[in-house]
Design a protein around this nucleic acid. Structure first.
Lengths: 207, 207
DNA sequence: TCGCTACTATGACCGCGGTCATAGAACACG
DNA sequence: CGTGTTCTATGACCGCGGTCATAGTAGCGA
């Protein structure tokens, strides 16, 4: 949960994402966003003449790019720590959520999921934004997998599987107020993910 | 999508579930539910004195029991068709969604997921109802897995994994308007699931 | 027929929230 | 100092929707 001290416009998009993932799209009010961002209400009209839909779409967009950036950051960190593995990447993705939930409670979920669920309340453009956000997340994950030695043909599928399992586990964890589902999918999926890497030198087993 | 011709009360609960999974909890109005159920508006006050929250909770409850019943039905069907497998069960769960999406479009998602996402809009009782619904779904799946030879210690974990992956794939499929995510998780998870069954005769390795 | 209960029917209230309109500050640039 | 642009500020409108209140109807036992 970075708190970027950029301009007021960016703060509002960020606040919108925070509120959406907590209350849902419909229950998030424009006035509420302004208050949360510490921005004047009139600025919403100014920066987002497209109204709520524009704000929501940009928030979803932001969330998608943020998720992609997280993947890149994981790769950077694990590059100097002995090399990343698929299961390690998935564990890092899951850990971000378990950390937040144990530290701050189960109030918030994934904003992209929230936008997808009541896209009907916010028009079709929001749904497309959600699809773009998933793409902006799946892409880096798939690339990371290929970089670890997963065949390109499977990398996309496994990325989809990882994100699906993660999103579903987030839902269950929120409902149960327990990180059990998150840790479960991480441990159960780990062997499948690591088994997908092709060894550079066949016949040589490592670890 | 069964259309049970029970009493008006049950019809309203059913209609509520249908609308919730399509528009979300907040965007579903009481008047809308009455119209969809072909029931008089006054009956809502009569049958659900607890207001919207009661109606939503019962709808979520209904959805959870419905999902559990689907699992039992799959077991019955595959019992006389050579015996069920974990991957077969998961494929059946996924196929229910791909069938609906290809036949009727991507308008609707899982009502339990919808209720979880904006539980903040509907109080904590709804969140508990969602947790109960997940439990009413996970339980039968886990039992089914043990019946297929999966060790009891792993059955619960695999059930959680299956439902997580399914829920996440539903989200992605709705956002993308494409069943790709659903079919992907089914095929990628299949070997993991089938590998979890313990053979009656140990020591016999199977590919 | 009376009276009771179950259900139906409808109108009104009231808060919420997105949007519009209008106008006031801040600040640059001649 | 004017004059324009950018941003801020606030009030008003208006529809939506949950809830309450009040009646009206239907069946039924006594």
């Amino acid at each position: 949960m970075p708190v970027p001290e950029r301009g007021p416009r960016e703060r509002m998009v960020f606040s919108a994402a925070q509120l959406i993932r907590r209350e849902g799209v419909g229950a998030t009010g424009m006035r509420e966003v302004a208050v949360h961002a510490g921005a004047p209400r009139g600025s919403l009209q100014h920066y987002f003449p497209g109204g709520k839909q524009q704000l929501v779409n940009e928030a979803v967009d932001w969330a998608g790019r943020y998720a992609g950036r997280r993947v890149a950051r994981f790769l950077d960190e694990s590059a100097r720590a002995g090399g990343p593995t698929p299961a390690g990447l998935f564990a890092a993705m899951v850990r971000q959520w378990t950390d937040e939930y144990t530290a701050s409670g189960f109030a918030a979920g994934c904003p992209v999921a929230a936008a997808t669920v009541d896209c009907a309340a916010s028009g079709d453009a929001t749904r497309e934004a959600a699809a773009a956000a998933f793409a902006a997340w799946t892409g880096p994950v798939a690339e990371a997998l290929t970089g670890m030695g997963v065949p390109a043909a499977r990398a996309g599928s496994l990325a989809t599987l990882m994100i699906s399992a993660l999103e579903g586990a987030i839902l269950i964890a929120r409902a149960e107020r327990d990180v059990r589902a998150l840790t479960t999918v991480a441990t159960e999926l780990a062997p499948l993910l690591d088994a997908a890497v092709e060894r550079a030198v066949p016949g040589v087993s490592q670890d």
